[in-house]
Amino acid sequence: MSGPLQRLLTALPLLFVAVIAGCRDAPAAEARPQAGADRAVQIRSVVITPEVLVRRIRALGTLQADETTQVSAEITGRITRINFEDGQRVEAGQTLFQLDDRIDRADLTRAEAQLALAKRSHARATELNGRGLLSTAELDQTLSALRVAEAEVAVARTRVEKARVPAPFSGFVGLRQVSPGAYVSPGEALVNLESVDRIKLDFRVPEAELAHLSVGLPATVSLDALPDKTFEAEVIALNPRASTESRSIELRARIDNRDGVLRPGLFARVQLELGRSEDALMAPEAAVFPRGEKNFVYRIDGEDRAELAEVVLGQREPGYVEIRDGIAANDEIVTGGIQRLSDGMAVQRQTATAAR
């Protein structure tokens, strides 16, 4: 083997060892890329500023007649006459049904005759007693007989009156349930009577609003049955007892219905005005998301990181919702990119504007 070739073969192992040693001495930063780089998430956000808000509660209710009753007779008897047409307006005291009262009228005539006789007997006895021809005891007996006769007339007259079934108040009768000749019993429903010149509206609101409720609050009412109209109402009463089942307060409002458009029993949508708030915080609905039974937003802190904040919601407006607790005025919250966020992540704004 020649000299140069031999020297080359001898040097190769030493060169290989040097290359390996050089690789081992290379810095760790050059051997692998840097880990843990913090990448910011692209988001959209708004700055929440105080604004004026007319506080409203929306509720569902049912229209009720101002006065309503089922007309019925107080005594047993046979109907001889009906003095109205179905759906007709009647006045208070007007006779609606007449029962057979012939026997009662005969009893009244007899009682009145006995009363007339008792009056004459007492007058004669009084005259004789004044002349000393009749004792005081005998005079007292005639007076007692007079009082009994007067009571008998009153009883007979009452029976005659009860054979007449009057309207207890003015209003509209409904559809009668009986016909002439029907034999009716006390308390049996004959026809419904509704007073609808004014309409009552019963509805419920959450008990959390109790501090804002009072008699006299205005409300706007809309009806599915009359979609092109709205009606003004005024709260006239609050139920002093809250519902333990629904945790709500029942209210009653009144609507003027002199034109007769509204009908008892209709379904109503109520918007109750509770006053004005000068510093309400309104956030886009897109910024709020639920977790379980709670609601949250992402607030951006001073280091441009997303901070999870639990919030308490209030009144809703189209596209917006009031935040009553959980954020402060001039806080910046995330409205877009929420799905990619978690608490503490860095953010980079695409847009940042006022809430509305």
Rank of each mutant, 00 (worst) to 15 (best):
I20S: 04
P27N: 12
E209A: 13
A92W: 02
L190W: 06
F84R: 08
R147G: 00
Q88C: 01
N83L: 11
A116M: 12
L201H: 07
D202Q: 13
G216D: 13
T136K: 13
A149I: 10
S2K: 10
L190N: 05
R176Y: 01
V71C: 10
R81Y: 03
D66K: 04
T353N: 08
A354H: 08
T126A: 12
G216Y: 10
G181L: 03
S342Q: 13
I323E: 00
G344M: 12
D86H: 07
R164G: 09
G87E: 10
L341W: 03
G275P: 11
L60M: 03
R102S: 10
V312S: 13
L96H: 08
A189M: 00
K162N: 15
N257D: 05
R102D: 10
G319R: 13
E127K: 06
I236C: 01
P284M: 05
Q94V: 04
E150T: 10
A151G: 14
Q114D: 15
L14R: 05
P50C: 13
A113G: 02
L210S: 15
K119L: 08
T80Q: 10
A151W: 09
E51Y: 05
T220H: 06
S72E: 04
V155K: 08
P206Q: 09
T109E: 13
T351L: 14
D38R: 09
A354R: 11
A26E: 11
E303C: 00
V321N: 06
Q271H: 01
V19L: 13
V196M: 12
E74I: 00
P13N: 06
A154M: 01
D325W: 03
S185E: 10
R247L: 12
G187C: 09
T76Y: 08
A11F: 08
T68A: 15
S144Q: 11
G314H: 04
P4M: 04
F296G: 07
T109I: 06
L281V: 05
T10H: 11
A35D: 05
P4Q: 08
L15Y: 07
G319H: 09
A65L: 04
V173S: 03
A163W: 04
G36C: 01
A354D: 14
V347K: 00
A123P: 00
E194I: 08
S72G: 11
V41Q: 10
L175I: 13
G265S: 09
E332K: 12
S342G: 12
D224L: 06
R78E: 14
L63K: 04
R305K: 15
V334T: 09
F289H: 00
V312T: 15
G22C: 07
A225Q: 07
P318G: 05
V46G: 08
S135A: 02
E317M: 07
V148Y: 04
N129M: 04
G336Y: 01
E150C: 04
E85W: 00
L210H: 12
D325F: 06
N330M: 05
G319D: 11
E307I: 03
G344H: 13
L99T: 01
F231D: 06
Q88L: 00
F296D: 08
L217K: 03
T76A: 14
G314N: 03
E74T: 02
R131Y: 06
F172A: 09
E317Q: 11
L341Q: 01
A280W: 06
Q70P: 02
Q94S: 07
V90K: 12
V288W: 05
I48V: 15
A242R: 04
I255V: 14
S248Q: 02
L201E: 07
V17Q: 02
D202E: 10
